[in-house]
Design a protein around this nucleic acid. Structure first.
Length: 316
DNA sequence: CGTCTTTGACCCGCGC
DNA sequence: GCGCGGGTCAAAGACG
């Protein structure tokens, strides 16, 4: 995917509207080509049709991350009705690890004010073992007494592809890279991102047995934009929630209300999957269209199915 | 002393 | 097969 991503980077259709972003929007987007959207809702389900329908009382963002909630619930919570099972976007480029918001998310998409969209990423069976495939790697080759040449070597089963966690990503406008979301994270790596001066940081939930990870990187086109990609689902309560500290956490209410506190002063931005119609990025995002308008474009039909209602601007 | 970050090395998948 | 890029590991250091 890197090439397309790179191209998209360079096309930079992202920058036009982004400047004027002032409204909160919610930018989940899909990450996996293989995912289906079957929410059980009819496409025309209009019981809730804007972000207000995303009732924080029922689900918080952190709950989205929480294991108690699956991604279909997330979809519902965001009113993602979609009858399509087609691939609507593939940021992941298929197999190559990496993916999501990362580079692809960086700046190739026009972010328009007053728009929001979300898309969860679900991959069947991604649950349990994910994140472990690499962990299978036997550390230190201590078992057989053979000193592994250097560091860790792992007898990974051949042919077994790495299972991917469901992922979703979002963009935030923030000075700080690591946004407080109520969970505790441990940084376990940092890598330079190709075509970007900003490194990507890798975090893992510090809770035992919780395999949720997240990647954080900055858009190289707009350093004020932070791309956060979550992978996996928390199987525990948010520490902040337990502390009764949700008020300052990243909750969906923040998606509809202006940022109110210093702990989360960001403006959420929107990111659309760049792989739609990837052959022609110049026509992909007409400059003068709002996202909503773009979604009316035939090319965005599927996406529209997924996020029919999140496009509405919140009216305070 | 426990926790977290930094950082270089390694592994893996993919494209050529 | 090789090289590249992404993702992860784990030792060492920093910090409270």
């Amino acid at each position: 995917m890197s090439d397309e991503v790179r191209d998209l980077y360079h096309h930079g259709s992202f920058h036009d509207d982004r400047r004027s972003i002032a409204d909160t929007s919610f930018p989940f987007f899909n990450d996996h080509p293989s995912m289906n959207y079957h929410t059980g809702h009819g496409v025309g389900d209009s019981s809730v049709h804007n972000l207000h329908g995303f009732d924080p009382a029922y689900m918080s963002f952190t709950e989205c991350l929480h294991g108690s909630m699956d991604y279909s619930t997330l979809e519902r919570s965001f009113n993602l009705s979609c009858s399509s099972s087609e691939v609507i976007c593939s940021v992941d480029g298929g197999g190559k690890t990496g993916g999501v918001g990362e580079s692809s998310g960086t700046g190739d998409i026009p972010v328009t004010p007053n728009t929001s969209i979300s898309s969860s990423s679900t991959e069947a069976c991604a649950e349990e073992d994910s994140g472990k495939s690499k962990k299978d790697r036997q550390p230190k080759g201590s078992e057989d007494g053979v000193e592994s040449s250097k560091k860790v070597k792992k007898p990974k089963k051949k042919g077994e592809k790495r299972e991917k966690e469901p992922r979703f990503a979002f963009l935030t406008k923030s000075e700080v890279d690591h946004l407080e979301d109520g969970y505790r994270w441990r940084k376990y790596g940092q890598k330079a991102v190709k075509n970007s001066p900003y490194p990507r940081s890798y975090y893992r939930c510090t809770t035992q047995k919780c395999t949720v990870k997240k990647r954080v990187e900055r858009s190289f086109q707009d350093p004020t934009i932070v791309i956060t990609t979550y992978e996996g689902q928390h199987n525990h309560q948010s520490p902040a929630t337990l502390r009764g500290n949700t008020a300052r956490m990243f909750t969906p209410s923040m998606l509809t209300l202006p940022p109110s506190g210093p702990s989360f002063p960001q403006e959420l931005l929107f990111q659309m999957p760049p792989t739609i119609n990837q052959g022609d990025t110049s026509s992909m995002y007409p400059r003068n269209l709002t996202l909503h308008q773009q979604l009316q474009h035939p090319d965005y039909g599927l996406l529209q199915d997924i996020v029919p209602s999140l496009i509405h601007k919140h009216q305070p």
